[in-house]
Computed example of a mutant assay.
Amino acid sequence: MKHEAYFTLDAIDETLIKAERNKARTLRKSRWWQQKTASGTCWYCGRQVGYHNLTMDHVIPLTRGGRSTKDNLVPCCKECNNKKKSLLPVEWEEYMADLHRRK
């Protein structure tokens, strides 16, 4: 009997996610990213936190099918990145709107 390697969807997804994270690490070292973070402004909340305090966020998270491309990566503060987690843009907008209604 011949043994064939079968990959589960989870294994393929994990491999793709790892590759996309490596792409993001490469982009983080680029001149493009330096220009994106130069203002020190969070893309989500608009606060000035300084470029050293910005993290890279995938607007469409890797776990939800996003990729590490320039149009899907934004600088954001650690607070927003931690709160957003793996939310899609529409889910994040609902969260932010709810926060503003509570104020």
Results as ranks from 00 to 15, higher is better:
M1N: 09
M1I: 11
M1L: 15
K2D: 04
H3R: 11
H3E: 04
A5D: 09
A5E: 12
Y6S: 12
Y6F: 13
F7L: 15
F7M: 15
F7E: 14
D10G: 04
D10E: 12
A11S: 13
D13H: 14
E14T: 06
E14S: 10
E14V: 02
T15S: 14
T15L: 09
T15H: 11
I17E: 10
K18G: 15
A19T: 07
A19Q: 13
N22G: 11
K23W: 13
K23V: 07
R25S: 15
R25G: 12
R25W: 12
L27M: 13
R28F: 14
R31E: 14
W33D: 07
W33N: 06
W33H: 08
Q34S: 10
Q35Y: 10
K36Q: 15
K36M: 14
T37E: 07
T37M: 08
A38C: 11
S39W: 14
S39E: 13
S39L: 15
G40C: 12
G40E: 10
G40M: 09
G40S: 10
T41P: 04
W43L: 00
W43P: 00
W43A: 03
W43G: 01
W43C: 01
Y44H: 01
Y44R: 01
Y44A: 00
G46C: 11
R47T: 05
R47H: 08
Q48H: 15
Q48W: 13
G50T: 06
H52W: 10
H52M: 09
N53T: 00
N53G: 07
L54N: 06
T55E: 14
M56T: 02
M56E: 04
M56N: 02
D57T: 00
H58S: 09
H58A: 07
V59A: 04
I60H: 12
I60T: 12
P61T: 03
P61D: 03
L62H: 03
L62P: 01
R64D: 03
R64A: 12
R64I: 01
G65W: 09
G66C: 05
R67I: 01
S68I: 02
S68R: 05
T69D: 07
T69W: 02
K70W: 15
K70V: 11
D71I: 03
D71R: 05
D71M: 07
L73F: 03
C76H: 00
K78D: 04
E79V: 04
E79S: 06
E79L: 02
E79I: 02
C80F: 01
C80H: 01
N81T: 02
K83P: 02
K85H: 02
K85Q: 01
L87S: 01
L87C: 04
L87Y: 12
L88S: 00
P89K: 05
V90G: 02
W92Y: 05
E93F: 06
E93W: 07
E94M: 08
E94G: 08
Y95H: 11
Y95A: 08
M96G: 02
A97R: 11
A97H: 10
D98R: 10
L99S: 05
H100F: 10
H100V: 15
H100W: 07
R101C: 10
